[in-house]
Design a protein around this nucleic acid. Structure first.
Lengths: 152, 152
DNA sequence: TAAGATTGAACTATCAATCTTG
DNA sequence: CAAGATTGATAGTTCAATCTTA
């Protein structure tokens, strides 16, 4: 393959590296804050958000995996650990004998309700409120384009 | 603390979730591509980039940790694994007996030179070229603001 | 045979010591 | 004691089987 390789210009490289860096620092800051104010990690929080998003408080495991964009095996291991901590429980599926549900427990609900306010404030402080409404819109448009490129 | 909690609006939440998702999918896609075309992971690649960035091809370990924004212990473990694969070597430091250098080896140089073209093309395809020049500028400005908020 | 889910092994990351030199 | 770096234990992730039911 003799496709010519064009390296990135300085400004392109700067945006690219900054993008990586912002994400790394933002995730780290939010994770630290969350663990300081609760017993939850970011993945724990995310999983519980999806479970509280539905009225029954439970989802098919593969549906949760899709929603979180995780591999099933990773989620399976994670659910096992969360189950051991009492945050969720596993339930069988009547319609499909192969399937299973994860359900949020009262303990899990209490944990996310306790953790959410501080976490949301921090997401506001470090992300939403750091930008003007126009910038946030623009960022939504830009990430939308990136997502389209990724998806197909 | 009775600070009132204000949850995110739908559009704010959408941008926030999309930001997380784009990063996750982009990293995954680049990682897959890199491993398909080379023996390097993204962290391997990043470390080697920093080492090739300097003329001597070697850096103090703590300097590399700062550049990569990694904890020293994580880098130490990672260097050990990369050293075992022959990509880098460790060297003592004359000026400061406590310190140490990591240096890229010929093998490491060959690996990154072989991997870089395809990786850069993929970064272009999925990121740089997916946006107009104006959008890339705007994204640079926006991530700059986020970085300021994180740092200060 | 394929789909939903789990398991175990190998790999990577994190956290709290530890070791050595300044 | 503080700074540079490493180590070991624990936690989390990935990959390739495996098991069960459709």
């Amino acid at each position: 393959m003799t496709t010519e390789t064009v390296w990135l210009s300085d400004s392109q490289q700067q945006v690219w590296r900054r993008w990586l860096r912002v994400h790394r620092e933002l995730s780290a800051a939010l994770g630290r804050d969350l663990q300081q104010h609760s017993e939850l990690s970011m993945p724990d929080f995310e999983a519980l958000v999806h479970l509280t998003d539905v009225p029954e408080g439970r989802l098919r495991i593969s549906a949760l995996a899709t929603a979180m964009d995780w591999e099933r095996s990773r989620l399976s291991h994670h659910i096992k650990r969360m189950e051991a901590r009492g945050l969720v429980s596993r339930e069988g599926c009547l319609e499909d004998g192969r399937g299973a549900f994860v359900a949020i427990t009262p303990t899990g609900r209490a944990a996310i309700e306790q953790a959410a306010p501080a976490h949301v404030r921090e997401v506001r402080r470090l992300f939403v409120d750091a930008l003007s409404d126009e910038e946030l819109d623009e960022l939504g448009r830009i990430t939308g384009k990136l997502l389209t490129r990724l998806g197909g």
